[in-house]
Design a protein around this nucleic acid. Structure first.
Lengths: 129, 129
DNA sequence: CCTTACGTTTACGTAAACGTCAAGCTATGC
DNA sequence: GCATAGCTTGACGTTTACGTAAACGTAAGG
């Protein structure tokens, strides 16, 4: 597909992060952009990985957890046993995400309750005048 | 309601956290348990707050953000202007949670895709033998 | 009376995730 | 030909969220 490439600055701007952060992710082995001399060249593949990383961060995962998941997407092994392991791993990851979604939905419900109470309070203020 | 109380150790065990963590939250003003002498006595109110804090953490919010939200639940002001502010604030919080849920659902979808690919690979391995 | 369990404060340590210089290379426009 | 913009690698600093150790208080049980 798109064989466009990006500089580190372009990616930082696009995803509202910093050069330092992107370099840090490379240091941690989460990214491995091409090099032309010393300069980093990011391909679509790297871009996608960066998006995965940042999304993981927004969801409160650590970089280690994120690295784990990213490698799941990467290594897609051909061997039988490894595939079984991977599928089991996917199950665990899904459970973690679902747990998070339960937390999230609960928080949303409570927020709705709070707003309702606020609106009721406002109504009462209007009525009593 | 329940006028039961808890020791710091009981709460730590129940929510699978540590004494240090709970004390730290008190230090940061997120909890303010009763004192009998120097010993902390936690009431239902404190317990609920602790649950809120831990859930917030699981969702990747900072303690500052969590403090903000907790205070929203607490201060429920009676005045008109403050109520309007609070409602606006609730809107922002909700948007943050919804954004997080979008991220989450996307991650879940991709995980499903990956699993499907794995199962297809397994199937192919079985077929070719 | 002494241990054991549970609690307390104080204070320094630490891991994660970057921020912030410093010092230097490189390519392009004027 | 030189300033400017953007990139590079160190290396030390900072914030957040606790961990950990020291030194001590308190209440119950054998």
């Amino acid at each position: 597909m798109s064989d466009r490439t990006w500089s580190i600055g372009e990616l930082a701007e696009e995803f509202d992060t910093t050069l330092r952060t992107i370099r840090f992710y490379e240091d941690r082995g989460l990214l491995a952009p091409e090099r032309q001399g010393t300069t980093r060249i990011f391909h679509t593949r790297d871009r996608v990985r960066l998006q995965l990383i940042l999304r993981g961060k927004r969801l409160g995962f650590t970089l280690d957890e994120i690295a784990h998941v990213i490698n799941m997407y990467d290594e897609t092994p051909g061997e039988r046993g490894q595939l079984a392991f991977l599928i089991a791993d996917i199950g665990k990851r899904r459970e973690a995400l679902l747990a998070k979604r339960r937390d999230l939905n609960e928080a949303l419900r409570e927020l709705d309750d709070l707003e309702e109470r606020c609106r009721a309070d406002l109504q009462r203020l209007s009525d009593s005048r």
